[in-house]
Design a binder for these strands. Structure first.
Lengths: 333, 333
DNA sequence: GTGAAAGCGCTAACAC
DNA sequence: GTGTTAGCGCTTTCAC
């Protein structure tokens, strides 16, 4: 039989109220003697308080939900780590949910998390989510969206990155380095970040007085496989280009591999820039030039914002737009 | 005010017991009419059941804890994904905990998870854990250890991989391909898997009738940085070698980068083999030859085993040793 | 300083 | 077929 607060109370010859107060440091008025006696018993019998029961009365579970497309995608572990670190520091626990970019799974998780009475949710929408879903609209707890902003979601917090200017900076840099025919190998063009990056790319060309060539936008998925096959078919098609701005690092890494396989010198013949700055970007040679997103900070700040909203119950909309940062390494001149 | 089961009962003009039965499909004896009436009300008012309250009485939270060293380490996301997938399929939810290889954090998480009344724990011990800790010993819920076995932990399940024979196969293959002076660039030698891999390496050499050279074991951390700097200083020291068997892929990737930087041809001059087969192993060129660990399956099976233990409350010790598989790619002849 | 008691939202045994 | 009721383990108000 599990030991409960009652057992402690009985053994310490006090009431459960007293034990509760001692445990929760609401013990200003408890005499040192009984306080110590209670603590001693607690340690002796190895009492583990049942937080489920406390949650019942306090209406707080001290747990957060994190919904992301896929933890196996190298972008998310760091983000998740940021969330978990802050959460842990503040005494919160994290429920991890992989949505697989499925709207149904997202909705199911949102529902589940509410049933489990999490205090708040951090949500990275699937790339195919174009609008706020029903589940999200009905949510009564704080939700903060990270990375992928959703049009139409009101009165909640968001942490995003300035994708447009990140892309603009990257492509401008490539142009400055003398690359002239720069293509954009993107992920799916359904999400806002994808569009923003494309727009930044376009604006850089325009600012430079360059017209994007026909077929300059080649969109696929955010994977290494797609980067590889995309470049392969580009080469086979005989299309000429001297630069590729990729939708993310995975695509860029795949592209790099394809270029090397075809004995195309990177960065001399073709310049290559990614987006995200995942850990692996530094582990290839040449090292990948890329636009860094502060992934860990995004997660950390999201958790910070969320806990803040929880504790000051639902202050107004807060929005943080974090800057990106071009990291010049070996795949550009 | 939140709507509760009482509200539903009142609106549907039935008792809470009836609502409960309908919700939990224990409604064989409930007439279709009332069943439908109850469901209708539930949907109309958007009732979200409070699982915390049910857990209170059923003693089941339908949540699992996952303790790993660091989700940002490429080995773990896939494992975590396997866990989460099975958990989700079975209606369980997953609490993610990063221990940072700290024994204190591990213990704190074990404690927390029990307070939150998780139904079971999946645990990958930190590489520095040499024995069962106090917290683990006192645990009263099912625990299954994955990846890193712990000596002395009894009456629980475990999912491990045959590290010794994985290493043996890899090194034997290298030997067969003609590499003669093979070093072992390992992670910290404190964990069982590290020792097992080293022993497999040793056995392969021995079987081949080769004596390991002096200084053949160079141990550091499981990181790309360490692989890189390890090989750099190896080269600077003038030590001669024609093969490196690495403790994991990250080390191997760092090593590859260092070799390429020094214009050492891989695989012609030096053969290189990693361990794990992380996603990135295929995204470099030449692609990395490595020993695959079924990471996703390990997580999946761990969750399967755990839920099985939970539901048949704590059947006997179960142990699954999964096979590794040598994946020959471009970094070996 | 400490305790009695109500009640959080639900389930399950049992009564009808 | 459906309802009554007793808790699950805790916190919190209020009384003493």
């Amino acid at each position: 039989m599990k030991v409960t607060i009652k057992d402690i109370a009985r053994l310490a010859e006090v009431s459960t109220a007293t034990v509760s107060k001692v445990m929760n440091q609401k013990d200003e008025k408890i005499s040192l003697a009984t306080r110590e006696r209670v603590m001693k018993i607690i340690n002796e019998v190895g009492y583990v308080p049942n937080r489920i029961a406390s949650s019942m009365v306090t209406k707080r579970t001290k747990t957060l939900g994190l919904i992301i497309p896929d933890i196996a995608n190298p972008f998310f572990p760091e983000l998740a780590r940021g969330v978990e670190d802050l959460a842990n520091r503040e005494g919160y626990t994290l429920i991890l949910c992989n949505s697989d970019n499925s709207l149904e799974k997202e909705d199911a998780y949102i529902e589940m998390l509410q049933e489990k009475m999490v205090d708040g949710i951090i949500f990275t929408a699937s790339s195919s989510r174009t609008e706020v879903g029903l589940a999200l609209q009905k949510v009564k707890i704080p939700v903060i969206t990270v990375d992928r902003d959703i049009e139409g979601l009101q009165s909640q917090g968001k942490i995003v990155v300035d994708n447009e200017s990140g892309a603009f900076d990257a492509v401008t840099y490539m142009l400055n380095q003398g690359y002239k025919k720069i293509l954009h190998l993107s992920g799916p063009m359904t999400s806002k970040p994808a569009m923003d990056r494309y727009n930044g790319y376009l604006r850089a060309l325009e600012t430079y007085g360059i017209k994007p060539v026909e077929g300059h936008l080649i969109s696929g998925t955010y994977t290494g496989e797609w980067g590889f096959s995309g470049v392969q078919s580009l080469i086979e098609s005989g299309m000429s280009f001297d630069g590729i701005f990729c939708g993310n690092d995975l695509i860029a890494l795949g592209a790099l591999k394809a270029l090397q396989l075809n004995n195309i010198d990177v960065p001399k013949q073709v310049g290559l820039v990614g987006f995200d700055d995942i850990y692996m970007a530094q582990l290839v040679s040449p090292e990948l030039t890329t636009v860094r997103q502060p992934k860990y900070e995004m997660g950390y700040q999201a958790a910070e914002l969320l806990i803040n909203m929880i504790q000051n119950n639902g202050s107004k909309l807060q929005q943080n737009i974090l800057p990106t940062h071009l990291v010049v390494r070996g795949t550009t001149k």
